[in-house]
């Protein structure tokens, strides 16, 4: 079962007493704010969690896997996530057993 925005809003309602509308709005705004920063070319560093970084990729040759036809993959900017030490340890310890 995947965690979604609905459960995050529910947690803000249960644990912080935000009303349902405020909780939903806050969760939306939280992710929107990170996206806006990345869109404006800024990296986002959330200590204890991880960093969202930007990488510029050059154009490279690609292939349509169905037809085998060669088509260039255009130059693009992509987001990568580097998990922080704390998150890596938390996941490693809990998930390997």
């Amino acid at each position: 079962m995947a965690l979604t925005k609905a459960e995050l809003a529910e947690a803000l309602f249960d644990e912080l007493g935000l009303n349902k509308r405020e909780a939903k709005e806050f969760v939306d705004l939280f992710f929107e704010e990170i996206r806006e920063r990345l869109q404006s070319g800024k990296e986002v560093k959330l200590s204890g969690f991880g960093n969202f970084e930007l990488r510029n990729k050059n154009q490279r040759p690609g292939r349509n896997p169905k037809t085998g036809e060669e088509i260039p993959i255009s130059a693009r900017r992509v987001v990568t996530f580097r998990p922080g030490q704390k998150l890596r340890l938390r996941v490693e310890l809990d998930a390997t057993g």
């Binding site: 965690l3 806050f26 969760v27 992710f31 990170i34 204890g48 969690f49 998150l87 996941v91 998930a95």
Partner: peptide, 24 residues
């Protein structure tokens, strides 16, 4: 609220659950 959101996402991953945020 910011800390709670990050903590819930970390907790889900520690339980081997996926986290799916549409559009993000």
């Amino acid at each position: 609220a910011v800390k709670l959101i990050l903590d819930r996402v970390s907790m889900a991953l520690a339980k081997q659950d996926r986290v799916e945020i549409r559009g993000f």
